[in-house]
Deep mutational scan, measured.
Amino acid sequence: MEVRTIKVFTTVDNINLHTQVVDMSMTYGQQFGPTYLDGADVTKIKPHNSHEGKTFYVLPNDDTLRVEAFEYYHTTDPSFLGRYMSALNHTKKWKYPQVNGLTSIKWADNNCYLATALLTLQQIELKFNPPALQDAYYRARAGEAANFCALILAYCNKTVGELGDVRETMSYLFQHANLDSCKRVLNVVCKTCGQQQTTLKGVEAVMYMGTLSYEQFKKGVQIPCTCGKQATKYLVQQESPFVMMSAPPAQYELKHGTFTCASEYTGNYQCGHYKHITSKETLYCIDGALLTKSSEYKGPITDVFYKENSYTTTIK
């Protein structure tokens, strides 16, 4: 009895394709271990004539594949690729409408935090270190965002349907971005203890939790000093293409032309909904596939993004 075979390709990165001759009487799992086709788990399936010449994702289970996976995804987590594939199996079914010149995501599976993050990423200057993220990001900007969303979920250790947080998501993504040249110098002034300067680099240099107003941050924000008295913390120097200011959701007025974009969060910790506000020729609110415009805006804002380049204080 002759062994019926077909020729397929296996890959971990969709760049390096490895030619395989597979036995049609055995499952993919018996031949390769966990195997995925377009995100779908085909591990328990036997090869079919229609699979001839198709590319299958496999887990990096030998040295060659491990090197290829690390170079593309910059992670050695053995569960990463499987999590990416199972997320992709959902995100490829989502709709990605162009809204006001940006790629958004039609609401499904509690994905409003991903839509808000995706919209924000198209408006701030950011370059990702893992080629996987950078490639998928370019495709997302062009309207094909399924891979990018699935990668975000995998890097953030999230599953489809789980509630997510924009600030946490951005923080994970910033860790995989090139923020080497970003720098922030802060000064804390206390009447009792004097003053202390701190220099922050990388992710810490672009994120701040405690106030939404970048102007206020430049002037000074009140913080408790270690001595128990009130101290003032203010920005001395900022070198970065953008800054992200966050605070627990509270009524906040966004003035046209003073910011790049913002995240609105309605609801409580267990259950809520994100919308995205962007400042173009007027203010726009993007909620999944829905767009509304207004000249002014007041609502429960939790993150505001500002364009920056270089700032030095005039406070002496």
Rank of each mutant, 00 (worst) to 15 (best):
R167S: 04
E239D: 11
F128L: 06
T226S: 15
T116Q: 06
S246Q: 01
L121N: 03
S86M: 10
V67Y: 12
I223E: 10
R83E: 03
E281N: 08
T120G: 05
L102G: 05
Q197H: 06
L173M: 15
T55S: 12
M245T: 01
D135T: 08
C271D: 06
Y155T: 00
L254T: 00
L119V: 07
E253T: 11
K46L: 14
L17K: 11
T64P: 09
V304Q: 00
I286C: 01
Y72M: 10
A145F: 02
A136H: 12
A289N: 11
I277P: 00
I315M: 15
F242Q: 01
P131Y: 03
F259G: 00
T76D: 13
T159R: 14
S279D: 14
N157H: 09
F56P: 04
G267F: 07
S25C: 10
N147H: 14
A250R: 10
G267M: 07
V58W: 05
T199I: 12
E253R: 08
R167P: 03
L81K: 05
I277G: 02
D180N: 13
G272L: 00
L88M: 07
N157K: 14
S86F: 07
N129L: 07
M26F: 08
T75S: 14
G257Q: 06
A289C: 08
R141F: 08
T211K: 02
R167D: 02
P300A: 12
M209S: 14
Y57W: 11
W94H: 03
G288D: 02
A142S: 13
G161W: 04
P60F: 06
P47G: 08
G143L: 03
E281G: 08
Q31I: 14
G257W: 01
V189C: 11
Q251V: 11
F128H: 03
D287A: 00
A150S: 04
H90N: 08
T116Y: 02
E144S: 11
A177Q: 02
G257A: 08
C156W: 00
G164M: 01
T313Y: 15
Q230F: 15
S213N: 10
A177D: 00
A132I: 03
Y265L: 00
L121S: 07
H176Y: 15
C182W: 07
N187W: 08
S181I: 06
D62Y: 06
L200Y: 12
T302M: 00
S25D: 14
L121P: 03
L153T: 05
V12N: 09
H176D: 03
I45C: 12
